[in-house]
Each structure stands twice: as structure tokens, then as C-alpha cells.
Simulated assay, not measured.
Amino acid sequence: MKDIADIRRQYGTDQLHQADLHENPMEQFKLWLGQAIESNLFTDPTAMNVATVDNDGMPSQRIVLLKKYDDSGFTFFTNLKSNKAMQLADNNKISLHFGWLSLERQVIIRGEAHKLSVAENAQYFLSRPRDSQLAAWASHQSKTVATRKLLEQAFVQMKNKFSNGDIPLPDFWGGYKVKPVSIEFWQGRENRLHDRFVYKLNEQGEWFIQRVQP
């Protein structure tokens, strides 16, 4: 097996200049996300790593799909009794990471997560495929299960239970909006001298941009 310390490559397919950045980081994110989608290089271009911290200060990470974004923040959905939800209940500070590595790009968001309203949760839940709605009812996310067969049986039970009509919104399922306080755009460059620009909010709620060293 090859020594993993020797696995490396040179970056430099693109570059990033402050003059080219949009003054609004959400518009810059929209541009980069659109390019990631249009590149057809990613199976899940909206996939993001969501990092939270438990009561002992131990961080946890998992991949979640971004479902909406606008000037007010980034939205994702989950089981409200999952590990991530329990950790956010105690400490709502959160980090999101998009790794579009085939484009030699990363976006790192730091902020606070706030629960969506029941109406917002219901609107999205009812737009999901029916089997995804059933899975939300069947799975007690993050809880132990002895076998996969038990999970599949729970899915069938939910399918029978809700065989007629719409599937109601579970009271243990919903979304969060992450309101950012900083957003970093990272572009790989030659010799590890990467371009990194961080948008931060000032006390007046306005964004300002800083270049940081790689």
C-alpha cells in the first residue's frame, strides 16, 4: 500500500480575487453552488458537513443536504430527537462545510441554528416523496436498533398505517435555519498558497471581507 503521506497533488485550476467577489456572501454562494451543480462533477452538490458540539465539548459531524438558502440563512431538516438536534438544543452554534473538491473549492459557514416554524416544516415535509415521509415516521434517528429487519418492518407498519390520504407531519421532525456570522470561500492554488476570503458581520449587521492566509 502506498504511503498516504505521499498522496498529494498540485492545485491551481482557478483563482479567486477580492475584486471578483460579490459584496453579499449569499450571492457569492449562489454563484459557486450553481457552478458546482452545472459542472456535473458531484452526485450530491448540495451535500454539506454539519458540525455540532455535545455537552462535553466533543464535536460531531455528519452529511446533510441543504434544502434552501436565502439572505436569512441556510436550511436543513432532520429528526428533532436525533443527536444533532439534542446537541443544538443545548448549544445552537453550528458549522457547515461544502467540499467541492473537484473544483478545488470549499465554503465554510459558522453561525447559529434556529428551529423553523411548524408551518415551514409542514410545507417542506409534504413536498417530499411519500416513501421519504414514511421513513421519517419509521426511523428513530440516532437510536440503536438490533437488526435492519426491524427497521424495515417499522417502515412497512407506517406504510400500512398511512395507506390512505396524506401522511401527517411528525411532531419530532423539522428544520433548522442556520444564520451565519461568517462565511469563508476557499479556492485551491499552487504550492498550497490557497485563496481564502472570509465574510464577517460587523456590529451594524453589514458584511465585510478579509483575506486570510492559507
Rank of each mutant, 00 (worst) to 15 (best):
Y199C: 03
A47R: 04
S72L: 11
Q35C: 01
S82M: 09
L66A: 10
T144Q: 13
K67R: 13
A36S: 09
L21D: 09
G34V: 09
K67T: 02
Y11D: 15
I37Q: 12
Q106P: 02
S82N: 10
F76P: 00
G12D: 11
N202D: 14
E23F: 07
P45K: 07
S182T: 09
P59I: 09
Q10G: 04
M26W: 05
G12H: 07
N49E: 11
N160Y: 02
D171V: 00
G12V: 03
A154K: 07
Q157C: 04
A135P: 03
K200G: 04
M86V: 02
A135S: 15
W207H: 10
I63N: 09
V118D: 13
H17W: 12
S95E: 07
R130N: 13
Y199W: 02
M158P: 12
F162T: 05
M158G: 09
D3P: 03
L169K: 05
G34Q: 01
Q15I: 00
L16Y: 14
Q18Y: 09
K161G: 11
D71C: 07
L16N: 00
L96H: 08
F98H: 01
S163H: 15
D14L: 03
R148C: 03
K177E: 00
S117A: 08
W173L: 00
L96C: 02
D90P: 01
N160K: 14
P45H: 08
M1E: 15
K68S: 14
K149Y: 08
A138H: 04
V198M: 11
V64L: 13
K68N: 08
N91F: 06
F155K: 06
G34C: 09
